[in-house]
Nucleic acid binder design. Structure first.
Lengths: 296, 296
DNA sequence: CACATCCATAACCGAAGGTTATACATACTG
DNA sequence: CAGTATGTATAACCTTCGGTTATGGATGTG
């Protein structure tokens, strides 16, 4: 009488999308597989969760009930994973820190060094998160803390310490016509296709396609990527241009990509983020202290 | 990164038993299968949950953390199932009522009839529960309410209405020497082997082997059964005798089984039980009202 | 009326998850 | 100290499950 939580996750996706096909896409799953999963869940619970129609999947009464209750189950599991992760951290003297792209840039190493000074015998394990996971593995207990760029979804559910800001620039293929200019104005780029993060990343995605700063002009999306390497490849392939932190020019220098300064966009903010209440005097607190020591 | 809750359930069993072999037994699983499950869970979480030794399995730090967090996850799932069940009940006009053995005896039909009078168009589905499930499917959302005999484990986590009591008698094989007596004294039966319910049923099991009423004399267990039919078969086979409600003589009359009155044991109490707070004015409340109308 | 959309079904395939039998290490016991 | 009991790990095997692609059928839509 137990479920695989994956079924619950799938159910939640279908309930949210109201559509099998799109939900399947979001879950990186084929549509027939999702059909099977939902059917399996319905069989397990002994009741229909959706009414099928040609316009999509609509929740039934029991379906509504499950949709309301499912987040609590998934949340409890996430909490369990965080607890296990925390215990493992303390038992093995390893702090796991997530990051997207270049973490805290040049400050990363000094921060880690300062932490090791406070906690001799501890190690720091850096772990790259996918943009597909909006909060970088923080709520799943994959990592104890993460270097994140603000804003990101559900940001206020976490504690964070802002470390620094840096200007943003434009990344484009080296042979892109715009690469001829030494400096760009963002208002000249409104019609260019942009490489974007997945939709699920909400405010993060919006920030990096500057959704707010284009005076209502819609964004053209050239490609959607989840990892720095894919992102670089898409840019180099000419699928579009992208906003990037200035430091990308140093950490992701490639012969087929050009980075140019741009005016008219706000800088990017890097912060250290951790789950609410997790830094109570332990090793994580020391890492936070080490990081903030290098904050601007 | 999602688990099958079965793994969590298995983990909890191993954590509680401190022993793979016994936990496997309790889960009706082979020991190698459990080994695999635990290993799989450890792999999923990326940390060791137990330290293996020849004396059993001891929890590690992360293991302790998971053991502390697992009940919340399983509880959330149970709550979800109950919510779905409640919605399904209201959507389909079917009230599902669990029972062990003979439910409310001869009062069962009148209760249902009275309920249908209050709720025309509704049906009542009776569903037998296994003694292996101490609370008769109540917390898993299998049923909306259940006819239970008191006491049963975690009884005070539920709401209940006592319906009636009835004397208990002794059931034994028809050719058992004691069957010659028209009436028995319990103090003469202390050395007889008894057919018992599974250990997991705690107070319920104790009540039916009269663990408290034998002056410290240990019980001999002749067999452990989970269902009335198995119970009857064990008795008929001569594996032991058993305490039974008087009504069993009517509802479970068999040529190979004799029921005899016994003195020196308290009567059995039948109650209607339902999850706390579930009877808020709905159909379940009407069923409770119908049942209590036939209470003593 | 053609077309796009969306869910269901079929056929297929590899991996997962269970079983029994057995090995191996340690602790207890006569 | 040998022998036995207890406890977990491994091996070999088999069935079921969960995923894939390809295709069908029903229903709104331009």
């Amino acid at each position: 009488m137990d479920v695989d939580l994956r079924l619950l996750r799938s159910f939640a996706a279908v309930a949210a999308e109201g559509n099998l096909t799109r939900a399947a896409e979001r879950l990186y799953l084929s549509q027939p597989a999702l059909t099977k999963q939902i059917r399996q869940l319905e069989h397990l619970l002994g009741t229909a969760l959706f009414t099928r129609s040609k316009t999509g999947m609509a929740l039934t009464g029991p379906g509504e009930a499950l949709a309301a209750a499912a987040p609590a189950v998934l949340g409890a599991w996430d909490a369990a994973r965080r607890a296990v992760r925390a215990a493992d951290r303390d038992a093995s003297n390893v702090l796991r820190v997530g990051y997207l792209a270049s973490a805290a840039n040049e400050r990363t190493r000094p921060i880690i060094a300062a932490f090791r000074e406070r906690r001799p015998g501890w190690r720091v394990e850096l772990r790259q998160a996918s943009w597909g996971d909006p909060v970088g593995g923080l709520d799943s207990g994959d990592v104890d803390a993460a270097f994140m760029r603000l804003p990101f979804p559900r940001q206020d559910e976490f504690e964070l310490a802002v470390l620094f800001t840096e200007p943003r620039c434009i990344a484009m293929a080296a042979d892109h016509p715009l690469a001829g200019h030494a400096e760009l104005r963002f208002e000249d780029l409104l019609d260019e296709p942009f490489i974007a993060a997945p939709k699920a990343t909400g405010a993060f995605r919006d920030h990096w396609i500057e959704a707010e700063g284009r005076g209502g002009r819609p964004v053209r999306i050239g490609a959607v990527t989840e990892l720095p390497d894919d992102w670089l490849s898409a840019i180099a392939a000419g699928d579009g241009i992208a906003l990037a932190p200035e430091s990308a020019a140093r950490f992701y220098a490639r012969p087929d990509i050009a980075y140019r300064p741009v005016t008219g966009v706000a800088p990017s903010t890097v912060a250290l983020v951790w789950p609410r209440g997790a830094a109570g005097g332990g090793a994580l607190a020391d890492f936070v202290a080490a990081a903030t020591a290098f904050a601007d």
